[in-house]
Design a protein around this nucleic acid. Sequence first.
DNA 1: ACATAATGTGTACAGTTGTAAACATATTGC
DNA 2: GCAATATGTTTACAACTGTACACATTATGT
Lengths: 248, 248
Amino acid sequence: MSRSKSRETRQFRSSSRTRRGENTGADNAPRKRGDTRQNLLDAAMAVMAADQSGLAGLSLRAVAKEAGVSPTAFYRHFSDMEELGMAMLDEIGDMLRRMLREVRKVGDPQQMVQSSLQTFFSFVKENREKFLVLSRERAGGSARMRAAIRNQMSYFSTELASDIQLMGAFPRMTRDDHYRLASMIIQMAVNAVPDVLDLPEDQPETEQALASDMTKQALMLLLGAAHWNADRPAASDSEKDRKNRKGK
Amino acid sequence: MSRSKSRETRQFRSSSRTRRGENTGADNAPRKRGDTRQNLLDAAMAVMAADQSGLAGLSLRAVAKEAGVSPTAFYRHFSDMEELGMAMLDEIGDMLRRMLREVRKVGDPQQMVQSSLQTFFSFVKENREKFLVLSRERAGGSARMRAAIRNQMSYFSTELASDIQLMGAFPRMTRDDHYRLASMIIQMAVNAVPDVLDLPEDQPETEQALASDMTKQALMLLLGAAHWNADRPAASDSEKDRKNRKGK
DNA sequence: ACATAATGTGTACAGTTGTAAACATATTGC
DNA sequence: GCAATATGTTTACAACTGTACACATTATGT
């Protein structure tokens, strides 16, 4: 392997005598003994971000080393790398719920799109590693992982759909339609995650352009929703559409 | 046409006296000597599909074994695993262009959505490994790989946008708008790839449901496009103005 | 026909991987 | 205080990794 970044770490972390009153410091502050599990999770995300491999191609030893812990200590907390991935997903789910809560704070429906996009941007930038994992494992991970991610997104879509429906902006749309709309919006957002992650930090104009583009995408979507079933009295109401009522 | 080309009955059986470990290959038809490069490509896709790892986590030796060649033979064709990935992308790009050509055959704009979706489905099912690579490396691969994939999709979007514009269905939309619409449609399709790939083969009803869902998504998108710029004060309203003045 | 390049094979080696076994220390419950 | 449990370390090993090297075979151009 052409890596050879660091040559064999003899000691993982020497005797940091306890006496650590405070925690929650920066990354390299010595943490308490029991924090190893969290350290492993953080380390895994860090390695995944630094390296460009997915969770499956993640080295247990590399993660342990990054966490400042012996390789075998890994097994005290996770039996498997996939299990660590599931634990990651729990954290990511929490983060997404916080984001949803933030989005819901907006009162004015007129400003809804822009303000939601803004919180989305700031959340992605503040949790880039988590979003990176999310968008990377969504298609690449194990079947179990993919299913779990799909679950998260489905939950998110349901919540958003109910929010939209409560707003009453699209009275002609069924609940299935609302869910579909919400799902499309979320897909749009998740799709943009890599772009947001690759955003150069010093230039806000690129971000502005991306935001404007996403705004237009969302508006076009909402425009379509607003006219849904409005101008198709019977023409396109074929028998096939009515037959399939149940989503997945 | 690409498949059964060489049935040349040369009797020069390659004197494989060594008989290494067991072969997991399903149909190991002896291929000609010079086909190794293609064999490696196919083997890489097969391993990637069987295993669930991305291209980066792919073992050179495993690929070589699957291709039925010695590990060192790999270097005769690719210097790197990433380079093999780029070669893969070339094949995938060809496939996508064939798909686009197929989509363009449709004359009736009324049936456009359904027929396009149908060709999309059949292409995904006939080239599942390639689509798997595409959707997996789109977010997970190396920076170079991701850029290349983005290029492919961008090309595809441009082509589709020009097609749509030539149809003249949305006269109020600028070229940028057309591109955005095309891009959204393609994103929708790429997003659905994992779902299509996970489709159970024995049940056509699930596929029908997915197709119906995608149809509605596309229709909602097109509906939004049809009303784009229709219901707002025309040219003077730039997006900068709208930022503060949206109260009506 | 013959030199040369292209394409393939086997061997070797140093690093890395996951993980088992035995041991050490800290935390907790009684 | 003391056993039990939780959490961590060290050592060890077999399997696997990429790839350098020397060599064998085939294809190709003149």
